[in-house]
């Protein structure tokens, strides 16, 4: 992991040269896989994610069937080779089970589940390379994959992180709210918030926070993500257009 850096932001410039409101370089490809009904490949800096959607299809096990709506199941997983340092033990752990739960709930709220009762919509998120903010990048990709599968949705879902990092401003110590945490910021930062957001309806469907934030800093963060969220939304639409317009 390396040693704790002295500063994560100096006079408004982060370690990798970004400003507080900047996302890392983004790349979104819709329809990345052959077999899945919908899929997406996403890069955010060096975080790399593949998302796939199967469904609506029959529910297995049958007793999990919901009779008035579709069951949206999301499985978030990190590949064994995805992390820096040691190999990650493959398969679900407590962290990934929790992320899968909240991601399933977030995706359920964006899909018109009532249109497909007694079916399952399965969403698989695989983190190929992890460089922080993996759960939110997974959800942004999952949303593109759902749209690619032709599943009717209330809005797209854009997901991104913000946090609080320490550093200096004009030579004085400072704590700064910034969007899209990268690995050093995630490891050493003072707070980390994962959000999933419907950009047109302004609805938040995922919110997980840890660290230390004042109420004002949280509100600042909610405000600050609006512009990068629009940027992500635009890229999602471009990726889908590219596939379907040829």
């Amino acid at each position: 992991m390396g040693d704790k850096p002295e500063t994560l932001i100096t006079d408004g410039v982060r370690l990798d040269g970004r400003k507080p409101k900047d996302m890392r370089a983004l790349k979104i490809v819709a329809g990345f896989l052959e077999n899945a009904d919908g899929s997406c490949y996403l890069e955010c800096g060096s975080t790399k994610v593949v998302a796939a959607v199967y469904g609506p299809r029959q529910v297995h096990p049958r007793h999990a069937t919901l009779f008035d709506r579709a069951l949206v199941r999301c499985k978030y997983d990190m590949a064994a080779f995805s992390t820096d340092g040691n190999r990650k033990r493959p398969g679900p752990d407590r962290r990934s089970r929790e992320i899968s739960k909240v991601s399933s709930e977030a995706l359920s709220s964006v899909v018109f589940t009532e249109a497909y009762p007694r079916t399952a919509i399965d969403v698989f998120i695989e983190i190929i390379q992890a460089d922080a903010s993996t759960r939110v990048n997974g959800l942004t990709a999952a949303s593109v994959a759902l749209a690619d599968a032709g599943i009717p949705m209330r809005d797209m879902l854009v997901a991104l992180s913000f946090g609080k990092i320490y550093g200096t401003q004009d030579g004085k110590p400072a704590e700064v709210v910034a969007v899209d945490m990268d690995k050093p910021e995630d490891n050493w930062g003072l707070a980390d918030v994962a959000l999933a957001y419907m950009p047109n309806l302004e609805r938040f469907v995922l919110c997980q926070m840890d660290g230390r934030l004042t109420h004002d800093e949280f509100r600042d963060g909610l405000e600050m993500i609006k512009k990068p969220a629009q940027e992500l939304y635009k890229l999602q639409k471009e990726a889908l257009r590219k596939k379907y317009k040829g």
């Binding site: 909240v102 709930e105 302004e202 840890d210």
Partner: peptide
Amino acid sequence: NDDICAMQKGGEGFFKPSEFDDMLE
């Protein structure tokens, strides 16, 4: 000191920004 140390949203519905303000208060 009322600083936030953790948050977790659950359930299949959503929250609007004004609802976050209400709940934080």
